[in-house]
Design a protein around this nucleic acid. Sequence first.
DNA 1: GTCTATACACCGATAGAC
DNA 2: GTCTATCGGTGTATAGAC
Lengths: 198, 198
Amino acid sequence: MTRIPAAERRAALIDAALRVVSRHGLAQATTRAIVAEAGMSLASFHYAFASRDELVDELITTVVGREQQAVLPDLIPGQTLHEIVEAGLLRYFEHLRSDPEHEQAMLELTQYALRSPERHPLAAAQYAKYIELAARSLELGAEIAGASWTVPVERVARVLVAFTDGLTLTWLVDRDDDAARAVAAAAADALTRMADTR
Amino acid sequence: MTRIPAAERRAALIDAALRVVSRHGLAQATTRAIVAEAGMSLASFHYAFASRDELVDELITTVVGREQQAVLPDLIPGQTLHEIVEAGLLRYFEHLRSDPEHEQAMLELTQYALRSPERHPLAAAQYAKYIELAARSLELGAEIAGASWTVPVERVARVLVAFTDGLTLTWLVDRDDDAARAVAAAAADALTRMADTR
DNA sequence: GTCTATACACCGATAGAC
DNA sequence: GTCTATCGGTGTATAGAC
């Protein structure tokens, strides 16, 4: 095997780890399974990371922050705020349907972080980012629709994130597409009522 | 140790397992940890259960179905449907606040079940029970308030369960009580709009 | 039936040859 | 730096004494 910079090796292992977690769950993401997925030897793992925990921590902080833009709706002028919000939720749902294992992996990583006091802040920081991104999208949506939020937008965003999590978890369990779309519609209703839609 | 019927021993191990999962997570709920919690020897475990998986399966099917009544609101005549629904959600939230580890354990068990095809139906069956219970509560609430659901009540219940899950997960992460209550209020809004409130 | 002692697999992590 | 080989520890499960 040729020589590979440490940073690159770390990135490759992170990618491999995410694939393993998505496919088989965090419990099955052993160092051996991860290096096999990455096509490396076992010893290279501890050359790049001090421990498995170090990799999992980095997995939580880096990977969760990647494809956040998937939730951004198409912002088409002329749409009502309700239409914009619902379209954003449905776009997220299509993302979930296209790669359910990935969202399941995210949930597992979050729950893992919640289990140890020193890792809990990692999960909290990620959710803070989610809320921030959601808030920006909601602001943009209101601007396009000519509406304005009557509740602090961060609070609206927090509700949106909660609704999204609930949609995800229940759909992962029952795979009921129609029910999930009903959740999206109800959520759009609730959120739009937090705005003055002019 | 005195002789104990197998059924009783199974029940004691199930209880002990739930306590261990709540305190330390499913990954830490090893056979050794469970029998230590139950005050038994390691061999008694495999006298009562063929395998650890068998215990976890029973944990999912039995324990999840126990305290479902916690969500039932006080049904006070004279309240509006919105008040009844929101009170039910807030009652659930107080239950969550009083024993967050238990709800976290439930989430972990659900996610574990989702990871293997043969266990997925266990999670689906539990959620079906949740939805059924929620539907009955919603019917009762509408009756008391003199309202009627304009959407099939099972569909309303499915949305309620999704909102509850989202409230749970986000609160477990950020422990923001006010934000959780805002989610409950928004959810009550969305649900009430699925009814003709007279 | 219930225990202690143990088998066996697999885990994270490291030693040491190259 | 990168590998193979291995260590120490812990997991599930079982054998065998009582």
